[in-house]
Amino acid sequence: MTLRTDRVYPLVLPLLSLMGLLLLWELCGRLGLLNPLFFPVPSLILLRFIAMLADGEIQANLTITLFRLFTGFLLGTIPGILIGLLMGASEKIRLLLDPIVAATYPIPKLAIFPLLMIIFGIGEFSKIMAIAIGCFFIVLINAMAGVKNINKVYFDVAKNYGASKGQLFTRVILPASLPMIFTGIRLALGMSLIVVVGVEFVSANYGIGAIIWNGWETFEIEKLYVGIFLCAILGILFTVVLKRVEMRITPWFGHLAYRDQE
């Protein structure tokens, strides 16, 4: 019995607060406490959402946004993780590349988007590259920190048992830095959502960002909200799915028994 409530509460309570907020919003809107020009009631937004779903507008825009997002994400994270691990594992590589990373990392990724459009044209590739660059640095820095924070005793054990460089990498360095790599991936997914919407504001006819921007330009406030809600839903989905994967792959992380060691 206790087991049941233990499992049900974490699902129900967060939903309850969300539903409550939406209900309050609806109520205040109906009572005329909110200006419908800025805050249309949720039911109207939902109606708009359903209409856009019916004529396929949502699907078309969501597909293109997700395509940009994931292509950019993969293009950025894979090299980012590899270079980050190498920089963490080798002092020489770190000394060589650190100045470049330190100099380019703080530039807001949207700031270089116009430059990317000049270089790659205004098609898909410039948008994908903007997302990739945003993800690249975040995962790189986290992967590097992941390696540098590995408890020294694991290196001692590997050395004592005669691990080769390759074995050290695949059996110790990579798995030991997985928790930090995941942190990087989580942040990178958030970043790609920000960047994809940003670049779609500026230069896209389709996509979630384009929906929002279009909503603003034509002053269709419900449409604008549909776009915002889509972003929120995507953000929540990413977090939930990643948490699941993380629990699968790094079950020891954050576990009390190992916390004092890591």
């Binding site: 694991y154 005669g162 080769s164 798995p175």
Partner: peptide, 27 residues
């Protein structure tokens, strides 16, 4: 030589038997 460390150094990412077999695996 094989060393047993103060902070045991058992790898949390491997199951128990893979930890015990680690030295043999390296050989």
């Amino acid at each position: 030589n094989s060393m047993v460390f103060q902070e045991h150094g058992v790898f949390p990412w491997m199951n128990v038997i893979d930890n015990v077999a680690f030295g043999l695996e390296m050989q």
